[in-house]
Design a protein around this nucleic acid. Structure first.
Lengths: 148, 148
DNA sequence: TATTGTTATACTCTATAACTATA
DNA sequence: TATAGTTATAGAGTATAACAATA
């Protein structure tokens, strides 16, 4: 139990949820980027497509809010997904509102990506003791949801 | 138990550690940015200063690696910390190497920021059941540490 | 007047590659 | 040749503000 020649201390930040989150996030986002790249997706594009597919007719502003962003973040993501034929902006309830819908190609891509995502998830949680994965997901959900 | 007019589903991503991490990270980084701004710090600057202070004489490359980055990420952070008088680049063991040292002002700032960070940490974990905070920190550490 | 979607803009974070000095 | 630090450059993510159309 001493294979590092010289362990680095994180000082103030050691053992905090805050900095642990940052380092875990960095690791996860890189792995996911790599896993998705062959499918022409990035993590935010997948998130937008996944939410749109699960909530047919959702408005851009609501999709952005679900992702934790402001309205203006949606446009470039939707532009890209629409250009790739994965999603459509259709008319919404208002003449000023839009309703988003995954296309057939979008649904197929999501199905194709499902095992990729599952493998990624397994890779990220492989070191966790039994039951810790679910507890972790729950704790993360609590933190994210407390976003006033 | 039904106060949201229409809950948004995350589809594929719902319940995953991967996406939970992303949303929790967004919430935490925003809160921390806000909390640190009055002290002239950003989260990465605090991380670099905290690590440098806890590991006197550490080399820039090792500091960057501890933060999960490549060598080139260190320079701009160190430039800024040095310009603010919080950190010094001194000579290292080699003529090509440097040793980083927090200045007195850097140490004082860290001390001043300690309660700010503790309050931030408390804010982020207030919704978690007893014992979940430590389990969360441990799980995050496991994920981050498995970074090959 | 408020809301929806968009555009413009800027700033931070991050990565890759190339350069210099030293080993 | 390899390593340490830096610089240059580019790209992605995010935020704010302002705009046009509609309500």
């Amino acid at each position: 139990m001493n294979d590092a020649p010289d362990a680095v201390s994180f000082g103030l930040l050691g053992g905090t949820v805050s900095y642990g989150l940052k380092r875990a996030y960095l690791r996860v986002i890189r792995d996911l980027e790599e896993a998705l790249a062959p499918h022409g997706l990035t993590p935010p594009l997948l998130a937008a497509l996944s939410i749109a597919a699960a909530n047919p007719g959702i408005a851009p502003a609501r999709l952005a809010a679900a992702m934790g962003h402001g309205r203006s973040r949606a446009a470039p993501l939707l532009d890209r997904l629409e250009a790739d034929g994965l999603l459509e902006r259709r008319d919404g309830p208002d003449r000023r509102s839009l309703g988003l819908h995954a296309t057939r190609a979008g649904d197929l891509l999501l199905r194709r990506v499902t095992p990729v995502l599952a493998a990624h998830e397994a890779r990220m949680t492989v070191g966790l003791p039994d039951g810790a994965r679910d507890a972790l997901a729950a704790a993360l959900g609590t933190i994210a949801a407390s976003d006033t």
